[in-house]
Nucleic acid binder design. Sequence first.
RNA 1: GGACCGGUAGCUCAGAUGGCAGAGCAACGGCCUUUUAAGCCGUGGGUCGAGGGUUCGAUCCCCUCCCGGUUCACCA
Length: 513
Amino acid sequence: MSNNDQNVSEQQEQRRKNLEKMKELGVDPYPHEFEVDTTAREILDNPAWVQEEDDQEKVHVSVAGRMMTQRVMGKASFFNLQDSTGTIQVYIRRDDVADEELGRDLYNKVFKKLLDIGDIVGIKGYIFRTGTGEVTIYAEHFEVLGKSLRPIPIPKEVEIDEGETKVYDAFADKEQRYRQRYLDLLVNPDVRETFKQRTEMIQIMRDHMNEQGYLEVETPILQPIYGGASAEPFETHHNALNMKLYLRIANELYLKRLIVGGYKGVYEFAKDFRNEGISRFHNPEFTQVELYVAYKDYEWMMEFVEQMIENIAQQLHGSTEIDVGDHTIDFSTPWPRIPMFEAIEDETGMDLYGADLEELRKAADELSVEYEEEDGKGKLIDNIFEDSVEPQLIQPTFITDYPIEMSPLAKKHRSKEGLVERFEVICNTKEIANAFTELNDPLDQRERFEEQARLRAEGDEEAMTIDEDFLRALEYGMPPTAGLGIGIDRLAMIMTNSPSIRDVLFFPLMRPE
RNA sequence: GGACCGGUAGCUCAGAUGGCAGAGCAACGGCCUUUUAAGCCGUGGGUCGAGGGUUCGAUCCCCUCCCGGUUCACCA
């Protein structure tokens, strides 16, 4: 879009004219800086600053932000100034802001005529209280800091009862909110709060892991061999090396190499990419934190993760109980631990531990669980579990001890035949964490990879490929290790009571406009 | 990819067996020195998501397409 763009609305045209007129008056609509010394929040939080009596000393402040409403009453006006912390009312009078260059024109023309809602302004003045009791800045100096050329949506919040507010004309169209997140953030304060909480959540986790002495690391996003999960990758190409590369679907195999390298614990908040469907719970790029700790097992990891997440709830909401949708979720530890086959038996009455393929198909048929002809035992069990157990699990629950077929990177269970030492945390009917005692036996790992390769040859496009360098690393020796992955977006959805993953991603993937 | 719902002014939304397209806020011109969804008087603003079809006439009915939401399938 250029200045010559013919598709400007009447209101955009008006704003461009106002911009020109400002320049003609010698007002710079885009100055280089403004000295801010106070925020709206600070003013509202400091009642002592308010000049209540005429003989009281004035507290002078310098604030900047966007003008969101304007109430002009002839020679004086009120407007609301929104900064990063909130909204403060400003009272501005013609004769009190008149300056040497423009005199009364600063108010009569610049403020009253040429300033538009959404413009960014700077105010210097003192704090007083209006007749109706609202803490307000009495402007003694006013200047334009950034002209806005497009009308912004203007939700109006009205207080109905004590604390009860009603919002009129909210900027509500989800498509526009996702496409123009800057507007969404600007006019919907709860959106700013949601993303702030997401960041705080990540910070709490980072602190929690740093306190244990684990090292935050970075590993490749562009990978010649993708691995660590079962998923379709995005493909790309490196020109200079003339080489096919994949955007990572997980960073597991790299982090385990670092454990081989001798660190006691490593973690990474990693953007992963999966070339699969988009839904309320899936975005093609999403964030996981993965953590690997040497000399620990999955039992230890269960305690670690439940404490970390309880801690998040506590710090974010001051309580271990959080309202999510229609439910109240209680993160107080310890969380129940239910072996997968027990969970299935509890819900279906069927004991499928040790069942062969035929028996599993029969069970799936009885439960009306769909499956494909080529699905193996692992897939069948997974489907049965997802259909019968997951929808029942609202409170955070550890599901433990998964079939070996669905866990090619997990260590065999120390006592249960055919299972691995793995757990998932299910919360609000969704998986939010996945962990296992890591497979560190290089010969076993090679067999598992080869089994994956067989599945792949049979047409399973999500089966893993053999990573020879990873095997070589294991052959040098990896200590017993516990590994964990947490879906950051999914957890953020729960912690912020957001119904869609798009509500916790600033810029969810959208088709081009 | 399937099903269902939606797209009308800058924002939120009405609307009509198919007959000049509406409201509130926003904008524009006036009045107003403690207002607060400020108020009062006046004015302008629309390719009714896009393209075809039916019709004297389509924003409305039919078809195709685009974009979004929810949901199912796949996945985390």
